Simulated scan of single mutants.
Amino acid sequence: MLFELSMLKISNTVTLADWEIELNAIRAMGSGGQNVNKVSSAIHLRFDIRRSTLPAVYKERLLASNDSRISKEGVVIIKAQSYRTQEKNREDALMRLVELIRSVMVVQKKRRATKPTRSSQIKRVDNKKKQGQKKSLRGKPTF
C-alpha cells in the first residue's frame, strides 16, 4: 500500500519529492494482542539515494556513511513501529529519514590536542598513590 506525500523539506534549499520515498504499511512485530495480528500499522520506508534529486554532496556523504540503515545498493530502509497508529508511524519514519539526511551534513569539529594541566597531573598521581596504599593494606598481615 503506497501513500501520497507532499514535499519533504530537508533544509531551506533541499526538498524531496513524493515519488522518491516509498512507504508500505506492514504488520508490526511484538506485543499488542489481536490488534497486531489484524492491523497493518507499521511503516516500511525505502529511499533510493542514487535515484533521488538530492545534491551530489548529500548523496556522496550518505553513501560514504557507515549507517546500518543504508544498504550496499544505496537504499535507506527505515521500519517504524513504535506507535499504535499508522499515521504516527508514518510521521516517525519520515522524521527519521530527515534526521539521517541532515546528520551527514553536520561537520565535526577537529579536535585540537592539549596537554593536561599541572594540577590535573598532580591530582592523578596523588590518586594513584592513595589507591596503591589502599591495596597494599589488603595483603596478608606480616608479624
Score class of each variant (00 low, 15 high):
132 G>V: 00
131 Q>F: 13
91 E>T: 06
87 E>T: 08
31 S>E: 09
76 V>T: 10
43 I>D: 05
55 P>F: 07
52 S>V: 03
46 R>F: 07
91 E>P: 00
85 T>P: 06
20 E>C: 01
110 K>H: 13
14 V>T: 14
118 R>E: 12
117 T>P: 11
8 L>R: 07
125 V>H: 12
37 N>K: 13
7 M>L: 14
116 P>Y: 10
75 V>T: 01
17 A>I: 04
59 K>Q: 11
12 N>K: 12
63 L>S: 06
24 N>G: 07
42 A>M: 10
49 I>P: 00
21 I>Y: 02
38 K>Y: 11
18 D>R: 00
143 F>E: 09
118 R>P: 00
47 F>N: 05
20 E>F: 01
99 E>Q: 07
115 K>F: 09
44 H>C: 05
45 L>K: 01
15 T>V: 09
105 M>Y: 03
122 I>M: 04
46 R>Q: 15
24 N>T: 13
1 M>F: 07
94 L>H: 04
85 T>F: 11
76 V>K: 04
131 Q>R: 15
37 N>S: 09
52 S>W: 01
134 K>M: 12
22 E>Q: 09
27 R>H: 14
55 P>A: 09
5 L>I: 05
81 Q>Y: 11
101 I>P: 00
33 G>K: 10
71 S>Y: 05
106 V>H: 10
138 R>N: 13
60 E>I: 03
81 Q>C: 11
107 V>A: 11
27 R>C: 07
39 V>L: 05
112 R>L: 15
134 K>V: 11
111 R>N: 13
93 A>W: 01
139 G>D: 03
42 A>F: 08
135 K>G: 01
99 E>K: 06
85 T>A: 11
78 I>D: 02
59 K>N: 05
8 L>N: 09
128 K>Q: 10
48 D>H: 13
21 I>C: 03
29 M>G: 02
15 T>H: 06
17 A>Y: 08
62 L>P: 01
139 G>V: 01
79 K>V: 15
41 S>W: 00
49 I>Y: 02
50 R>D: 02
68 S>V: 09
53 T>Y: 03
94 L>G: 03
55 P>I: 08
23 L>N: 02
132 G>T: 03
80 A>W: 02
100 L>K: 04
3 F>N: 01
99 E>I: 00
47 F>R: 05
103 S>H: 10
140 K>R: 15
21 I>R: 00
3 F>R: 02
94 L>P: 02
36 V>H: 04
88 K>C: 09
26 I>D: 04
82 S>H: 13
85 T>W: 07
112 R>V: 15
139 G>F: 01
29 M>K: 06
31 S>L: 08
52 S>C: 04
10 I>R: 03
108 Q>D: 13
84 R>F: 06
117 T>H: 13
105 M>C: 06
28 A>L: 03
121 Q>K: 15
16 L>H: 00
106 V>A: 10
67 D>L: 05
120 S>M: 08
46 R>T: 12
91 E>F: 01
2 L>A: 01
138 R>M: 12
118 R>M: 08
104 V>I: 10
6 S>G: 15
111 R>P: 02
